[in-house]
Design a protein around this nucleic acid. Structure first.
Lengths: 333, 333
DNA sequence: ACGTGAAATCGAAGCGCTTCGACTGTGTAA
DNA sequence: TTACACAGTCGAAGCGCTTCGATTTCACGT
């Protein structure tokens, strides 16, 4: 193993000089810097992470708590992870994989052992049981999601409330009077999933504001469940002409089922969704939608970590404003 | 921060004794061990990972290269990851997340810096361009998948060739004469994905052995693509009565499309698949299938890492034998 | 000519842990 | 009884790096 000492000898300088070349924490003459860098390449030197962590009290590692078992919207989860890893690497950080399933004790352990300088937690729910324990972790913690009580923790999320309002508003502005929200699997609501509840709240409040009747349905995946749900939603008594769908898993099935019933989108029914852009684009009928900006949220989470690591910044909450893309699946009536 | 020194003082022993209590590498009297363990709890001691890594030359970390962008069969990928993380933790190892996208240089970096003691690489293809570089990594490397040339590298995978044989054989044994393989997205074959090619080889060789005509189709996801594929496969000229499906993404759509055509499974067509068990079970028609034993493969990969880390074991190749579960979606004719 | 400060470099003291060799006492075989 | 093995413990030497203070040199204003 090549050590900094050997680099120093090879370049004819002291260890500390090599260290300062690497970290840039003190000024070094161009000439010396060049020689040291050449030696580093010549010898194939790689700093030892353990030694560095020990001496500097910084591991350059981010703990990331990933929900590995949650089956719904895996693609979105992957997008988050990809974005977080990429952003972390840009800041010279690596990512240690922790799983939601193994509990918040893992975050503790990893920080207590100085294996990670900060923790990012994905898939945070309204009344997430992990919150109290996360609050006692002795390192910056950034949550993807918005728990009800987020005192002392940084949070990043899409503004689902506003998104719910916008989705309802978009259809209402087009003259739709009877609009239904088709939400996630019932279990998602039972679990108290924050984003689902907030979208629902935004939707109903916008509908109430406009004095329109709001009908709300949750729908399990599976063709039969979707069909049953549509039976209910499209019951003639209701006169539903607009559908807001917040359920990535069933979008394809739903559009198929509408087609099977010879209902044209947007001719007969307007459909608008909240889902990743690539999904919205690749469906049988491209959907007007609000995207979950996973990549952006991930990189913002990392930025928050870094700024809290740099200065001893206070925790902050950032809600990204939704962005609606019109793909022609809604029409005025 | 509580250090081992403070624990030693609190327990009235030397640092080395505490260390030996923790590692068990020398015998310690019951009495002393008890006192030390009490002190550890009383003070809330957590060993510093960096110091430990520096002194012992072991990071207790596993680098895991995950394909974050590969959109197909995310659920399977997640199962692998979950199983690997869980198995690693059982051996007191943590997992550092590396992405396939950022290249094999990352594996190098992480090992050269002693951030990881070994590397596990997922989603390895037949002629994987990463192989040569992985071979030069100065730590055990275990591949999930079977590249053509795996000299010097450990590999774990399902025996897809045998699986292909078994799938064909199962239908042939039931008296089906015209059997079609519906494979993955064409791009999967173009990429030279090892498992797809091996399954295909097994399938065709079994069909040849039995002197039956083998028809092979690859199919993109999407309802129209599936319908088009079925048009071709079920063309009356062919008289196809058995379907082997190796394409998780389209299974649901395929069964729906069969239903739409009023074709009963297994009454009119027998269908057998290679897919995760939970998928096979949750489809509109539960499918007789061979499972991808992701959890098992993951934990075997970790075991291989550990044994190569312990003794300086030679790389080995393990192909898991396929296990076929009958769920009644095939019938004799 | 002289003090001053900035730039450039060095030396050495740790960071917290593991591990090796040495030491002490006890039980056991000769 | 002597010798010896062995369980149990300690002290100290690192592991490879960062960082602080000290030192040297040189340009500058006065």
């Amino acid at each position: 193993m090549i050590t900094i000492k050997e680099v120093a000898r090879h370049a004819g300088v002291s260890m500390s000089t090599v260290s300062y070349v690497l970290s840039g924490k003190r000024s070094i003459s161009e000439e010396t810097k060049r020689r040291v860098e050449e030696s580093i390449v010549a010898l194939g030197y790689h700093p030892n992470a353990g030694a560095r962590a020990l001496a500097s009290n910084r591991s350059q590692v981010l703990g990331l708590v990933v929900p590995l078992r949650s089956d719904h919207n895996l693609p979105v989860i992957m997008q988050f992870v990809a974005s977080i890893v990429a952003s972390a690497r840009e800041h010279d950080y690596d990512v240690l994989l922790l799983t939601k399933e193994s509990g918040p004790g893992e975050a503790h352990r990893v920080v207590a052992r100085s294996m990670a300088d900060a923790i990012v937690v994905m898939d945070v729910e309204s009344a997430d049981p992990r919150i109290p324990e996360l609050r006692t972790v002795d390192a910056p913690v950034v949550l993807l999601g918005m728990p009800d009580d987020h005192q002392g923790l940084s949070c990043v999320d899409l503004d689902f409330t506003t998104a719910g309002r916008q989705l309802a508003g978009h259809l209402a502005d087009l003259g739709h009077r009877s609009i239904a929200l088709i939400g996630s699997h019932p279990s998602v609501y039972e679990r108290g999933t924050s984003y689902a509840a907030r979208l629902l709240a935004g939707f109903t409040s916008e509908m109430a504001k406009r004095d329109l009747p709001a009908s709300v349905h949750s729908c399990a995946p599976g063709y039969d469940a979707v069909a049953a749900c549509l039976d209910e939603v499209l019951h003639p008594d209701r006169g539903t002409t607009g559908l807001v769908v917040h359920n990535e898993a069933i979008l394809g099935q739903l559009l198929l089922e509408l087609r099977r019933r010879s209902l044209d989108v947007p001719g007969d029914v307007s459909v608008i969704a909240l889902c990743p852009d690539d999904l919205a684009e690749s469906l049988p009928v491209p959907l007007t939608s609000i995207a979950v900006p996973a990549a952006e949220l991930g990189s913002i989470a990392v930025e928050m970590v870094m700024s809290r690591l740099a200065r001893d910044h206070a925790p902050e909450v950032r809600l990204l404003q939704p962005r609606l893309t019109d793909r022609g699946s809604t029409r005025a009536r």
